[in-house]
Amino acid sequence: MTNRDFWRGFARNKGAVLGLLLLLAVMALAAFADILFPGDPWEMATAPFQPPLSGDALLGSDMLGRDIAAGIAHGARVSLVIGLISTAVALLIGVTLGAVAGFHGGWVDDAVMRFTELFQTIPNFVLAVVLVAIFTPSLTTIVIAIAVVSWPPLARLARAEFLSLRSREFVQAAVTTGQSNLTIILRQILPNSLSPIIVSASLMVATAILLESSLSFLGLGDPNAMSWGYMVGAARTMIRQAWWMSFFPGIAIVLTVLSLNLVGEGLNDALNPKLARSRG
């Protein structure tokens, strides 16, 4: 598939274009947070409980006089970084296990699939809460917890792809020429099974951001990182006094997750054009 085909496929989905623009805006906000809102977002810059559009706080201030807008801008970094890294870790776990299972088949496949099933049975948010709580909240534990609960669908997907590609002629040819299993997996099968994995991964970033915000909402965020979930969680009990404290960070989450979902769909349309057409 050429680049032009890809973009044409992507651009046919208007939602995806809108999503991409939104996502770029959020990324810009994260990148330029220091310029837009210099200094520390934890800084008690103004009087507590300032409503939106008041003097020096565009979106209002919280109970300690911290600027909500600054928090949202700096929180964008935390959300995006955690979303991306935990997805990468989940990909590593999921694709590796799926590849091994699908390529080897037999008892290996069986064992891996039982293991995957086990993880799918444990309610995944409960598991994430427990993991973060036990290993104390920090960026690392949060990323690991999200990855640990997110990999099973990727493993299943990768396994299915590998299972079907393994019997294809080009793979069989590689086997007869005596290439090693690892080379075959990395050189032959993986590149050909990439597009569904990319689509799932882009949707998973959105899920990861939601998961992170939910953990932070429960007070299981990294105490040194200003994140959107933390802001909503801290504002929960103040909702009668200051609705803006929970409203705006929530909007930020919705827009970011929405943009990622839209982009994911666009990728799907662009990378799997046949499927896209059949869906009308």
Partner: peptide
């Protein structure tokens, strides 16, 4: 559906109760 799918449920809950 797209919006509902992108909204954290705890936030929906807060806003509905507000």
């Amino acid at each position: 559906a797209l919006l509902a799918y992108a909204t954290p449920i705890y936030w929906t809950g807060l806003m509905l109760s507000l």
